[in-house]
């Protein structure tokens, strides 16, 4: 694997559109559940161990070659909110465009052909990692980190939170991000043998409910 390729894929400036999403932070800020660095950390920790673990597992499984169509269906079943399913597919399509230009591959072409409106973002992320010569652990780390970094960055804008504090939150979560990535790699190995149904399905009820509330707002800063 190439460590530099991992940095390119994980770079917040990689043109995949993630900056337009808050990972539920915008709704949680408005509802008064995130008010500063401490509650942001708790929010990110909950996100990491639920949707973060699921995304990391899907990405790792795609990177090690579990069929993407099966993974996309598993992602649908793990995302009850139609708003979040749509957001995941839009992000998947944007990532697909960037990834095909960056690391062209037959597998990316095939996935794009199968899902013209976009596959779930973690699935695309896994196939993109594979095309970049990266492994399941790289894909899992990217997805797990993204599951918290987007919310932290968004909260800086939403609350005018000190960016140093937001970054310190991410640094404090780093050991747990590593742990979640390890769990995801293990789950991906299981899915190779038992299918995508064996992947974790950890859920966060307030993220799902909040996403539907957020979608109904007339004015919002972030897409989700």
């Amino acid at each position: 694997m190439s460590r530099a390729a991992l940095l390119v894929l994980a770079d917040g400036r990689f043109p995949a559109g993630g900056h337009a999403h808050s990972g539920g932070a915008e709704e949680a800020v408005k509802a008064g559940r995130i008010t500063g660095a401490a509650s942001l950390e708790d929010f990110c920790r909950g996100r990491l161990h639920t949707t973060g673990l699921v995304a990391a597992s899907l990405a790792a499984a795609a990177a090690v070659g579990v069929p993407a169509v099966e993974l996309d269906a598993a992602a649908d079943a793990r995302t009850p909110s139609p708003t979040l399913r749509l957001a995941a597919r839009r992000l998947g399509r944007q990532l697909m465009r960037a990834a095909r230009a960056t690391w062209p591959s037959d597998e990316l072409d095939a996935l794009a052909g199968e899902f013209p409106k976009g596959a779930h973002q973690p699935v695309v992320l896994g196939v993109a990692a594979r095309s970049a010569g990266l492994g399941g652990d790289d894909a899992a780390h990217c997805a797990a980190y993204e599951s918290v970094s987007g919310a932290a960055t968004a909260t800086v804008r939403l609350l005018s939170l000190d960016p140093f504090e937001a970054t310190a939150v991410l640094a404090r979560l780093a050991p747990e991000v590593d742990h979640v990535a390890d769990l995801a790699v293990e789950a991906a190995a299981g899915a190779l043998e038992q299918g995508a149904g064996a992947l974790p399905a950890a859920s966060a009820p307030l993220l799902e409910i909040g996403a539907e509330a957020h979608a109904g707002w007339a004015v919002r800063l972030f897409a989700s």
Partner: peptide, 12 residues
């Protein structure tokens, strides 16, 4: 349970 289960993203 994994951390954050009672926090603002999960059950609050």
């Amino acid at each position: 349970a994994p951390g954050g289960w009672d926090g603002p993203a999960v059950l609050a």
